[in-house]
Design a protein around this nucleic acid. Sequence first.
DNA 1: GCCAACGTTGGC
DNA 2: GCCAACGTTGGC
Length: 164
Amino acid sequence: MAPRYWLLKSEPQVFSIDDLQREGRTGWGGVRNYQARNFMRDEMKEGDLALFYHSNATPPGVAGLARVVGTPAADPSQFDPKSPYFDATSSKASPRWVMATVAFVERFDLVPLEVLKADPALAGMVLLQKGQRLSVQPVSPSHFARVLKLAKAKFKVTRRDNHP
DNA sequence: GCCAACGTTGGC
DNA sequence: GCCAACGTTGGC
């Protein structure tokens, strides 16, 4: 079956594309939204490709590419009382929270959110819809191809002022 | 720091 | 089932 395309959000202060490159692969745990979980559990398949998006960053944008490997697994953090993602109501017999595993594919110069927003070819992309906050979201083949094309271009990134 | 948008919770 | 209150996300 043809691969599908996704976008995964991560705060780079927490886990960046560089971290993924260093580690090679990672379990996409800590997702506590049912819609996002369902995408990982039911629709992500080995070989699917995902845009790696840096959220809460300056500037935010697509920072690289990852590939889905293996099959979904129970997210171990739900069983760890010390984890912020602990879920006392989940059981090992029937885990509520599931994670995909993704591998590093490529890192590229950031494609800033600003550039995505300004591109008419990306109109309708889930990421750009008002108010959407899903951390795991589908991307259409044409939008995916377009973002990759943008990634080959160079962007002058204007940092916003945000002094600590 | 602000705030809009959204999801979840819980009283009724 | 309704919906107000609350917490979170995430851009700016």
